[in-house]
Each structure stands twice: as structure tokens, then as C-alpha cells.
Design a binder for these strands. Structure first.
Length: 430
RNA sequence: UCCUCGGUAGCUCAAUCGGUAGAGCAGCCGGCUGUUAACCGGCGGGUUGCAGGUUCGAGUCCUGCCCGGGGAGCCA
């Protein structure tokens, strides 16, 4: 069966086809009606003229409401006045299910109402565009690592202990004991990197922090490469190359969606190598120069990140944070033991941290000491210490939060629109 | 967890000092052969989040609770 999809309309000019889809919008002008039908791939203006169709069907076309599911048969022609540049002269149509009371109207809605109807909201044009771009970004992530010698090794969702002791975990029953939902695949990636050299994992991660900002979700997706024999500079090189690749891909393949979102494409076109690389100390200088009240040695807050990133047109890599504010596995800088060999990548336009990573401790004794200093249970990290016991190796990697990356590339304010069904602090429906 | 703002028609909002709850859109009826969130005319539509309290009288003031938005901390 040859399927017709609206996005392929240009191949069907002059031909008779059938669209299976949903009524997206309709306009009427007496004896001529414009049905805007969407099929998931695009929107087609279907023109129903009174004299060209049975009187019953003409009357029916007046009555059906938005999101009625239907099959429309007609001939495709070029038409500059229609969105997409093509329209269909309708010969006949059949209703699969008539709808008269679709809750989302063409006019404005509040965010609470839209989130309550998220399962329907994703049908609308902007949400559709965002999720198409999300797909493109995810595909680009996979392609980048697949093409560069990385092996995808999935890490577990159920974990026996915290990867990073500080943050809150979602606890769940695991038969007679309890388990936690993963916060990161990194520690497991370090084990698989010793088996495969270059690896990545890609999956959902869960944080039970009661965060309630436009940059936070309880459940979010993260892609995490881990590279054997890499130092901090190697990690930064990969992160930079990776981001450039993703942005280029979206610009190549999703221009139409970016237009729907009214994204300023010129800002994305500037994303090229090299990215600025500054130390934590230099970032603090920027804050102080701009009059931000900042205590040296603290971690950056969301507002601080915005101020720093707004000083650059490209993503900025901030490296060598004070080791005290970072996770236990961070390799100290040999030139200053108080600094960690880590990097955060801050997206431009105030989108904040999209990547966090660095070089991991590869010395057994030092790692053991750090685990104890952070009051973590040594027993639970026995397997992790084994990686340093049996053929240890310098290594590093990073994690990129998909939702923040999508929000930045799409130019939308809040991460909740970058995933089909966001899990936010006070909403787990639908 | 803390700070802050809000909850009124299906939706988005208004309602002066505490004094008869109102508009746009959607819906319904009618008109229009090129509309672009189409347009024009007409019509219906309310447990003011919940429970108490103050008052002659509460959408409005007070107390508690519920739900949500924005932010902080923490983080991707």
C-alpha cells in the first residue's frame, strides 16, 4: 500500500491521494470551505467546494469540529496561498469519528489548562515542532557517538545506591529490599569504558529534588559518553565537537520546525568551534565585573549562569571549579589540589548548564579517601573501586541533559515543553 | 522546604470603598466562492477552588485547607 504523507505532497502534484488524519482547523466562506487537515507529518489545506461534492457531505463538513478524525480524498495542486505551498481539491471525504467539543481552542490558554491537556496539546503546531526537533537532537546524539567509535552500553535504571550522595533519590521497593531510580549512568559507564574504550549511555534519569524552576524536571533524559585514556582537555574537545554537530544537524533537517517556533536561526548559525574556555576563577571575575554579589568558592546559581553565558555568543566552557563543591569522583588538578578537573558547558542566551563532566579519579587510594571524606558507604562502592584496582586508566566523560539542550535550540523558555509528558514537582498527570 | 503570585462562564480575563457577577473567544442559529487564529449579525451560558468566620450584606475582609504559576536552594 502506498501511503501518502502530507510532507511528501510535492511528489504528488496533479495526483489523486487520500489523507488520513485529523481536522486541525477550518474556515468557511459560504459555498467554499477550507479544511486544514493534519496527518502527523504536516498540515494540508483541503478545499471543499459546494458544487464539487454531494450536498450531504457539504453540510457535514460545516458541522464537524476540530480534531475530528477523517479520510479525505482529492487532487494535490500547488497553491502559494496555502500553508506548505500545496492544497487539495477535495473529491470526497469520510468521517471516522466526529468531534464537536475539542477542549483546546484556537485562542489563548493558560499553562495550567494546557498541562492538564498535555495529551492533546502535543497535537498543536508548536508542540509538534518542538518534539520533532527533540527527535532530531536525540538522533544526532546517537549518530555522533556511533560514527565516532563509541559503543552504546545501557546502564541500569534501578540502582542500589546514590551515584552522587548529595541529591535526593526516588526510592522504590525491590522485593525484600529497596532500590533507587538512577540519577546518572556515569559510574557504570566508567566500568564499561574499561571494557569497550569509548562508550555512551542514553536514558531517563530521576531526581527527587523539589526543584520548581523552568530548568527542572523530576524525570529527564541524559546522554553520557565516557572515554578511556581521556583527560579534561579531551573531554572538552568532544563536548564542543558534539554540540556543534547537533546544532548543525537541526539547522540542516529541521529548518521548518525552527520557523514554526520563530527561532532566531542566526544565533544558532554562530555555534562553531572553538568555544570559549574559561576557568571558574575567570567566571567569578565576570560576575564581579558585572556587579553580581557572589561569594568566592560557591557554586553558580541559575542567575549567575545566565550572567556568565550572556557574555558570549557561543556555549562557554567553565572549567576547574573548587573541588569542595563538586562530586567525590572528580580528579584534582595536579597544579592546584583545591580545583577539580571538571567542566560545565553553559548554553548561550541564558539557558544555563547543558553539560557537566570532567576527568575522574583513577587512583585507588585517592578515590577510597574521597569516598570516606564524603561519608559514603565504602561497601556499596566496592565494584566502583575495583575499576581502579584492576587496570586503572585515566578517563573522563560528560552528561548532557536533553531537555535543556532542546529548550536552548528551540528557543523556548521552559523545559516542560521539550518532552511529551513532563514530570514536574506538582504534576504527574497525564 | 522557603519566598512570592494566583484560583470568577468551556477558555482568557474584568468586577472601584464590602452593595444587582461582566466582556472577548469558544458553542448554537443565520449570512458569505479564496479563507489564513477568516469575517459580519443574533442567542444561550455562573455552587466566584473547599470549609468556617466577621457583616444588614462577601467574588472582595479574616482563619485553615486544597490546587496551580513564578522563583530560591540543588542540579542537567
Amino acid at each position: 500500500m502506498q501511503e501518502f504523507r502530507i510532507e511528501d505532497a510535492h511528489e504528488f502534484v496533479g495526483k489523486e491521494v487520500t489523507i488520513k488524519g485529523w481536522l486541525y482547523n477550518k474556515r468557511s466562506s459560504g459555498k467554499i470551505k477550507f479544511l486544514l487537515v493534519r496527518d502527523g507529518s504536516g498540515i494540508m489545506q483541503c478545499v471543499v467546494v459546494k458544487n464539487n461534492i454531494s450536498p450531504e457531505k457539504f453540510e457535514l463538513s460545516e458541522k464537524i469540529g476540530l480534531e475530528t478524525s477523517l479520510m479525505v480524498r482529492g487532487k494535490i495542486k500547488e497553491e502559494p496561498r496555502a500553508i506548505g505551498g500545496y492544497e487539495m481539491e477535495v473529491i470526497d471525504f469520510d468521517i471516522y469519528q466526529p468531534v464537536y467539543d475539542y477542549p483546546i481552542s484556537k485562542k489563548e490558554h493558560g499553562i495550567e489548562f494546557l498541562m492538564e491537556h498535555r495529551h492533546l496539546w502535543i497535537r498543536s503546531r508548536k508542540q509538534h515542532a518542538i518534539l520533532k526537533i527533540r527527535h532530531e537532537i536525540i538522533k544526532a546524539c546517537r549518530d555522533y557517538f556511533d560514527m565516532n567509535g563509541y559503543t552504546l552500553v545501557d546502564t541500569p535504571i534501578f540502582t542500589p545506591s546514590a551515584c552522587e550522595g548529595t541529591t535526593t533519590l526516588f526510592e522504590t521497593k525491590y522485593f525484600d529490599t529497596s532500590a533507587y531510580l538512577t540519577q546518572s549512568g556515569q559510574l557504570y559507564n566508567e566500568a564499561t569504558a574499561a571494557a569497550f574504550g569509548k562508550v555512551y549511555c542514553f536514558g531517563p534519569t530521576f531526581r527527587a529534588e523539589k526543584s520548581k524552576t523552568r530548568r527542572h524536571l523530576m524525570e529527564f533524559w541524559m546522554v553520557e559518553p565516557e572515554i578511556a585514556w581521556a583527560d579534561l582537555n579531551d573531554v572538552m574537545d568532544v563536548a564542543e565537537d558534539f554540540i556543534v554537530f547537533i546544532v548543525k544537524r537541526v539547522l540542516e533537517n529541521r529548518k521548518r520546525e525552527l520557523e514554526v517556533l520563530e527561532r532566531d536561526i542566526s544565533k544558532l548559525e554562530k555555534i562553531e568551534k572553538p568555544f570559549p574556555r574559561i576557568t571558574y576563577g575567570e567566571a567569578v571575575e565576570i560576575l564581579k565585573k558585572k556587579g553580581v554579589d557572589f561569594k568566592d568558592g560557591d557554586d553558580f546559581g541559575g542567575g549567575d549562569e545566565t550572567v556568565i553565558s550572556e557574555s558570549f555568543e557561543k556555549p562557554v566552557m567553565v572549567h576547574r571549579y573548587p573541588i569542595d563543591i563538586k562530586a567525590f569522583y572528580m580528579q584534582p588538578d595536579p597544579e592546584d589540589e583545591n580545583l577539580a578537573l571538571c567542566v560545565d558547558v553553559l548554553a548561550p542566551e541564558g539557558y544555563g548548564e547543558i553539560i557537566g563532566g570532567g576527568q575522574r579519579i583513577d587512583d585507588y587510594e585517592l578515590l577510597l579517601k574521597k569516598i570516606k571524606e564524603h561519608n559514603l558507604p565504602v561497601e556499596a562502592f566496592k565494584w566502583y573501586l575495583d575499576i581502579r584496582k584492576y587496570g586503572t586508566f585515566p578517563h573522563g566523560g560528560f552528561g548532557m541533559g536533553i531537555e535543556r539542550c532542546v529548550a536552548w535550540i528551540c528557543g523556548i523558555r521552559h523545559v516542560r515543553e521539550t518532552i511529551a509528558f513532563p514530570r514536574t514537582l506538582y504534576r504527574i498527570y497525564p
